[in-house]
Amino acid sequence: MRIILHVWRQKNASEPGRMVRYEVNNVNPHMSFLEMLDVLNEELVQQGEDPIAFDHDCREGICGMCGFMINGRAHGPEPGTTVCQLHMRHFRDGDELWLEPFRARAFPLIRDLVVNRSAFDRLIAAGGYISVNAGSAPDANAIPVPKQAAEKAMDAAACIGCGACVAQCPNASAALFLGAKISHLGLLPQGQPERYQRVLKMVSQAALEGFGHCTNAGECEAVCPKRIKLEVIARMNRDYLVAAVKHLGVKEAVEAGVG
């Protein structure tokens, strides 16, 4: 099949970018989307042009490195699928597709479809962990964890940190990503001691990084390749409220806009 692509080309953060049109012929429906770009890039290189830069590594939908917008949708049209696992059988001969990088204030552009998502690492550094040094743990079965809690924690822990939720959100909010980590750790007994400190620190770091506020648009859930549920945001908000009340008192918490 034949696919027409319009791709955002931008050499680096300081030079202006633009959309460039390409035609890819002989696309095999069993190819992945990134394999189609590989084939196009091979041709570009043969012709002495710069290939399209895009991030990827595992190509198994788990490392979270890949991701760009296809026709305005992060990771493209298939629900629950990263762009590295998106196969061309989901497109039709002659389809015309627009590829753009994830755009958000907190994700500055590096080149073409590649952006810098280090802000996510700093959100985790703000408190997305359980403080335990190697060597100090009790026996693994000392604290039973109800199966249901473990399963729900795992649902949230499945987040791959790709940033699609931020890119799709009209406010470029990181709420789904934050909620996922806060829920994962907060659902487990091991995560309780730092539960309320964690939510305060991570949420305030998000504001510092330039992520927007969550207004419950729900766009994030629709594009999340790991199907992280909006309920993680609700959980985070509840924890934040409790934390703020504990920390600030009810009046200040309300004034600070918690809720």
């Binding site: 962990y129 743990a137 199966k147 473990a150 994962h184 750790l185 091991q190």
Partner: peptide
């Protein structure tokens, strides 16, 4: 054996039985 202890303490959501054990 130490690895599993440490990883559980870090909050790794390992699969569990109904009784809550690993």
């Amino acid at each position: 054996v130490d690895i599993i202890d440490h990883c559980v303490a870090q909050g790794i959501p390992f699969a569990r039985e109904y009784g809550g054990v690993l």
